[in-house]
Design a protein around this nucleic acid. Structure first.
Lengths: 206, 206
DNA sequence: ATAGTTATATATCGATCGATACAAATGTAT
DNA sequence: ATACATTTGTATCGATCGATATATAACTAT
């Protein structure tokens, strides 16, 4: 049974993806409704927008969910226990960096850059899912280090939180460097450098 | 000889500092004129604002200059040849992190977070001085590594750009972590971790 | 005292912000 | 054919955006 009523003239899901790109590029507050409307299905009217998405804020929420379910999956390895902790960390760094630098969408990570997406006090709640994702990713890095310690791969003296923060902070910075136009190959070389941090802490007794 | 004409009812320099804090917190585009006016000298009128600063953009430029001449100086060690390269890098990381986490002003670094200060194409030129400062800081880190190689402190095999990017990317990430409320002590511990990167590359022949 | 200079206060500019009212258009269900 | 559901187009809402015109107030220079 098909839907009742007059059919939509644009693809709603494609519209969410398009909105995601715009919010990713400019952030929540700086993106205007006219901007969104103009880039959905070759341009839609105000009532069509509100009928389909409810409000700018609700569309942003959908766009964030869309990002988390697609592009943000580059960090999934952090919670995959079938991958060694070291590989999980390196894979995450390389996958995320590659994604952040590839063409076809805005540079950098929407979650990281989302720190400044809704800076006004009245809108901080809007970017809350992004903050939650950042917190989760940090925990993911710490988790990997803890797993390595438990597995006896890293020394018991290793400070898991410190190492987790170090890897996470580097990756957050990649978003800014990608926006500034630093090459993916240069960033990859610096990942190789950064991973030496892991190898120092390798358990000698192995 | 004192100035002619009716005297100003507010301190212009204090106003620039106050504006700097607001732009630092919210970015250029998201900061409104009313917000600036309300926070200058207990509130000023629109004509007073324009008479004193010319425009929102010009005030932003002054605010950025003010930041670069004060808070941004935490990275000055990178160009100080009287400090050993390693100390220069560590000092910069610790000073900047301390500054970014201290109270009395917005968390994070105005230069780093300025990546999303003016995301609209029509305003990108406004945040250009911030981008230039980020580029300069990156070069400062690279410079320190190069200096260490020249001095024979680091191995000649060291990839200066990769290491520079690694330290710089970490520091850029600190801005986001500081905004997210991560403790300064935790960040400091991760700096201790990060500096091990340097010690791995130490020249063995010394 | 008078002229010249600068900042002030009041009022308002056109443009854009996010969001709605209303009625015509277009589909399905019976 | 009719009723119902949903989207569309046109017009517009009050609020705020950054910025300005005009006239008055407060100071210095002569």
């Amino acid at each position: 049974m098909a839907k009742m009523g007059r059919p939509r003239t644009f693809d709603r899901q494609k519209a969410v993806v398009q909105a995601m790109y715009i919010f990713w590029e400019h952030g929540y507050e700086t993106t205007s409704l006219s901007q969104l409307k103009a880039n959905i299905g070759g341009g839609i009217s105000t009532p069509s927008f509100y009928a389909a998405f409810g409000s700018k804020e609700k569309l942003f929420n959908e766009a964030v969910q869309c990002y988390l379910e697609t592009y943000a999956c580059v960090t999934d390895a952090l919670w995959d226990d079938e991958i060694s902790p070291r590989d999980a960390v390196e894979l995450t760094l390389r996958r995320s960096t590659k994604m952040q630098c590839e063409s076809g969408h805005p540079k950098g990570c929407m979650v990281s850059l989302g720190t400044m997406s809704a800076p006004s006090p009245e809108f901080t709640h809007v970017a809350e899912p992004l903050a939650a994702s950042r917190s989760r990713t940090l925990q993911g890095f710490v988790r990997c280090v803890e797993r390595a310690i438990t597995m006896g791969e890293l020394s018991k003296k290793t400070n898991a939180r410190s190492m987790g923060i170090a890897f996470n902070s580097f990756l957050l910075g990649v978003s800014i460097l990608a926006r500034d136009g630093v090459d993916a190959s240069d960033l990859n070389d610096s990942i190789t450098e950064l991973m030496k941090l892991w190898d120092i802490e390798l358990c000698q007794s192995k």
